[in-house]
Amino acid sequence: MTIDAVEVARRVAGCGDVARLTGGPGGVGTPVIGDRWVEGVRDLDPGIEVHVVARWGFTAAGLTAQIHDRIGSLGSPVEVVIDDIATPYDEAAAQAESRPPANSGDVPAPAGKKSRLDDAAKGEELDVVLVPVAVETVIVVEDGGKPDATPLSG
């Protein structure tokens, strides 16, 4: 039986203790139609293997139960591999990256690196919330070529 790797990835990524799926050191993944690749999901036939990055504060038993609850109906047994953990330092770095620099009108970039799952998810019915990004208009006023600006006060 062939598993629906995109659906497995979508359900696992929705677990509270899962930061994201990962290919891990071995680059685990499953090819899907359209020359796409879903990281962190492998069809064991029978069974499913998922590789995840856990959130800081997880418990192994809790994370396992969450994943089993979500994808147990898609295949059994479910093998969970916790390849990495997102530490508080990683989260702080991600926040710092997403924060715009001071005195800049740049639109903040979305945090995190775009994964192959994003490409694989295109066109699929995923629970993706599109957040509108506010675009700030920056008006640059030039001084019309005056050699020196007039001081505001004497």
Partner: peptide
């Protein structure tokens, strides 16, 4: 971690 529904493996780096 072994359960009835499958196993959970934790990498040393974690």
């Amino acid at each position: 971690l072994q359960t009835d529904q499958g196993n959970t493996t934790i990498a040393d780096s974690v």
